[in-house]
Design a protein around this nucleic acid. Structure first.
Lengths: 121, 121
DNA sequence: GTATCGTACAACCAAATGGTTGTAGATCAG
DNA sequence: CTGATCTACAACCATTTGGTTGTACGATAC
């Protein structure tokens, strides 16, 4: 059977919910990009945006729950770093979709090939 | 300059917001997988889930606005198909993050290499 | 024709989201 | 010790989200 990744995703992966939910906000995507490139304290991040410190703090918390970011206490500040594992998990799902797409494409190609066989004696 | 993809993403890409928001729900991910593999009418999809028809209809609408899915009227039913472009766009962003990550990794490798040079006379 | 099917859409509701302000606890600098 | 910084967290608010039910309408079947 060609396409049965589907049965493997009956429903309800909360981790993926949180991952994509976390990526569905421009500020948070920006934070991910920055902390993936280098280190930032929470207030260092907050300085980059016009919103309040608490708002940025909440965004970081969302990213942390989504495993896109880790926090580590250093002195009085909290260092935020990108977490590659979270990104990998999101990429993996999209790769699966890509596979499903390609399988469908090749199925269609097969059908066309069959048609050709039938048409050309 | 090594990492200035960052300045290119100052903020506010509504399309990406909608894309990831759309993927942040297990039912919608399941729909994407199914309609990417083959064709479904809206009611055909609705039959797969326990929720109401209207709920599924809304999910499809969200996916459509996110360019993850297209609808095409055929007779009295509406055929839902996967839209590869939307997926590609999401994959592209994650690929950019992957690049940022690798650049950071190689920067760190460079620093370690410098340290080695300094340490070994 | 009438009945039924597939769809669209409005109105409503509870819960989650994204933001604010304010308060309080650690940690560092002087 | 005192004051400034960085963080955490609660309370509040407006808007969005994910679901419901109900109504209306075009296409199909009989």
């Amino acid at each position: 059977m060609v396409v049965d990744q589907l049965s493997k995703t009956p429903s309800g992966d909360v981790e993926l919910d949180r991952l994509f939910q976390a990526l569905a906000d421009a500020t948070r995507r920006d934070i991910v990009a920055r902390v993936t490139a280098g280190e930032y304290s929470v207030s260092g991040l907050a300085a980059l945006y016009t919103m309040s410190f608490a708002a940025v703090q909440k965004h970081v918390a969302v990213l942390e729950r989504a495993s896109l970011v880790t926090k580590e206490k250093r002195g009085r500040e909290q260092i935020v770093r990108g977490n590659h594992d979270g990104l990998q998990k999101a990429r993996h799902l999209l790769d699966q979709f890509e596979m499903i797409w390609r399988q469908r494409a090749s199925r269609i190609a097969d059908i066309l090939a069959e048609d050709n066989e039938r048409d050309l004696p």
